[in-house]
């Protein structure tokens, strides 16, 4: 006789849930659960009346249990590759955030020492090149920022000149391959790099002026303002 036609089906479901259905009877009931739809339907009917378990029931198992399961079931092969794991991206995002924080901190600390101060704006007669000159706070470096950047090419060089405020011959500060440049200022020139002096860029043969004075056209010039 099938269990689903059993007059005591509800009683069997109840004893199954309570746990007093044991041994062969329990196994028979479980077989019927798989094979007879009305049995599983009736059991579900009763299970749905059961309240949720209380959180007070919970007991934390030792971490050993999971480690053993992971090993015995060979779970590693069913893991998403590292770059698809959510934890990886979460960790990466956290790392990036902390790097940003550190960078911001370093920047804040080092800004006074390494910061650049704009000292002049250089422009040509046709306004084609605009160059902004910066000096580092410690006075050792001069930086040129050109828009658009201009590259001298293989046959020519640019040369940066300082025309002192008190007048006199232009002094070469450096030979440049491109207008976007960083150059070190010789200690002897540092005092002259002050308000009233003029910066100028000339076009020279490759390697710089052969005479020590500007020989080609001046493409940009501007007075140091501070």
């Amino acid at each position: 006789m099938k269990l689903e036609d059993h007059a005591l089906l509800d009683a069997l479901c109840g004893e199954y849930i309570v746990g007093t259905l044991r041994g062969a009877s329990r196994r028979r009931f479980e077989r019927a659960l798989r094979e007879e739809p009305r049995v599983s339907q009736r059991l579900r009917h009763w299970q749905e009346k059961a309240p949720r378990y209380s959180a007070k029931m919970e007991t934390r198992p030792s971490p050993r249990v999971w480690r053993r399961l992971e090993k015995e079931l060979g779970l590693e092969q069913y893991r998403a590759p590292w770059f698809r794991r959510r934890e990886f991206w979460a960790a990466l995002a956290a790392l990036a955030a902390s790097v940003l924080l550190i960078l911001a901190f370093i920047h804040q600390v080092e800004e006074p020492a390494r910061g650049l101060v704009q000292i002049a704006q250089l422009s040509g007669t046709d306004e084609s090149a605009r160059v902004i000159a910066y000096r580092s706070r410690d006075g050792r470096t001069l930086a040129l920022n050109a828009t658009p950047d201009m590259v001298a090419g293989t046959n020519r060089s640019y040369e940066l000149w300082l025309i002192p405020a008190e007048g006199g011959d232009p002094v070469s500060l450096g030979v440049l391959g491109a207008l976007d440049a960083h150059l070190a200022i010789a200690e002897s020139e540092r005092p002259r790099l002050r308000a009233g002096a003029t910066l100028a860029v000339s076009v020279e043969p490759a390697g710089g002026s052969p005479t020590g004075k500007p020989t080609g056209p001046i493409i940009a010039r501007g007075q140091i303002s501070s």
Partner: peptide
């Protein structure tokens, strides 16, 4: 201690 009576139909 077993059940959370606050939830669940029935």
């Amino acid at each position: 201690a077993f059940f959370d009576w606050s939830q669940g139909a029935g």
